[in-house]
Computed example of a mutant assay.
Amino acid sequence: MSEKTPYDVLGVAKTATEAEIKKAYRKLAKELHPDLTGGDAAKAERFKAVSAAYDLLRDAEKRRRYDAGEIDASGQEKPQRQYYRSYAEADPSQRYDFEGNFDDLGDIFSRAFRQQQGGGAGGSARGPRMQMRGADLQFHMEVSFLDALLGAKKTVSFPEMGRVELTIPSGVEDGQTLRLPGKGQPGVNGGPAGDAYVRLSVTPDPVFTREGEDVLMDLPISIDEAVLGASVEVPIPGGRVKLKVPANSSSGRVMRLRGKGAPTGQGGHGDLKITLKIVLPEVEDPTLAEAVKAWRAKNFYDPRAGWKGAR
């Protein structure tokens, strides 16, 4: 059986749009995220695979390179072939950017070896030492919704880089990349070190979602709170507040807490939009049923009057 492609893992076609890929990821993340599945090991493993697939396909350049067979599903370079053909077909003046003239490939390799060893016979180098910038490193990291929204400092360990103090700026979004200058591979012969890049995946939150600069949440309320009004304690990003639910509030009504959303990038914040959801008791209450019957007998109204779906 052939190994699943990132498209297979997300359950999308190879021609899927960016929006379709994002929608598929979000659906699977809500089903499989460890915080929402009670520690199910199998689902946790699937979530890792889904996150890795999304991390590759969300990046247009990585997706292009994967489709072209240049990198594998983990984002690693595939072995390149036809080196000699590439050399032979290249413009001789542009095959290498070494300083100096070389008679053949053997001289190139032997000279490079002597430079790495500190020189030729007697310890003297035959040519200039090449300074090369170190390679960049690429990493992936998951952050919680609230850490991404509010900002956080994390001590994390990455292969080839060890433990680092990482600052997550407030308001970062899913898919953004943090650049750590000089944290990549060391340079050669005194060349500068490369950089490290950390791509962030924001994990779904059981309460909040984000829509641009606004944060959204649903608030369950009882039927008596909806009818009579109430003061309800609700979570907000970074704390809790008392929310006044007006009397006669229908399910679906949106309450807005200004400035409690995501950073706008101009010193301000979006809003927290709270959608009211009337929830009836799980167990049928005869007293409530009788009260509603008595009320309906005298005060019937049509909630679908004027509704577009009415006929």
Rank of each mutant, 00 (worst) to 15 (best):
A226Y: 02
R126Y: 05
E3Y: 07
P181N: 03
L178K: 12
V227I: 13
K23V: 12
D147E: 15
G309M: 06
D107Y: 04
A44E: 12
S86I: 01
T177K: 08
D91I: 03
S157G: 04
A226K: 06
R133P: 14
V50E: 03
K260L: 06
L10P: 00
D224G: 01
Y87T: 01
A310V: 10
Y84D: 11
G259L: 12
G75A: 00
D224C: 05
R210W: 04
D174N: 15
E18C: 00
Q117V: 05
E142P: 01
R111W: 03
A60R: 15
G265S: 01
V234A: 08
A16K: 06
K244F: 01
F109P: 00
R111C: 07
D218K: 14
E3M: 03
T287V: 15
K293V: 05
R253G: 02
G119F: 10
G229C: 02
Y197F: 15
V215G: 14
S110G: 04
H269M: 08
H33S: 14
G268N: 02
D59Q: 05
L272E: 01
Y197W: 15
V215Q: 11
K14W: 05
K78V: 08
A305Y: 09
L280I: 00
R65K: 12
K154W: 00
E211Q: 14
G151Q: 07
T209M: 03
G194T: 00
L276R: 02
K308W: 11
P186A: 14
E3G: 10
V143T: 10
D302R: 11
Q266G: 08
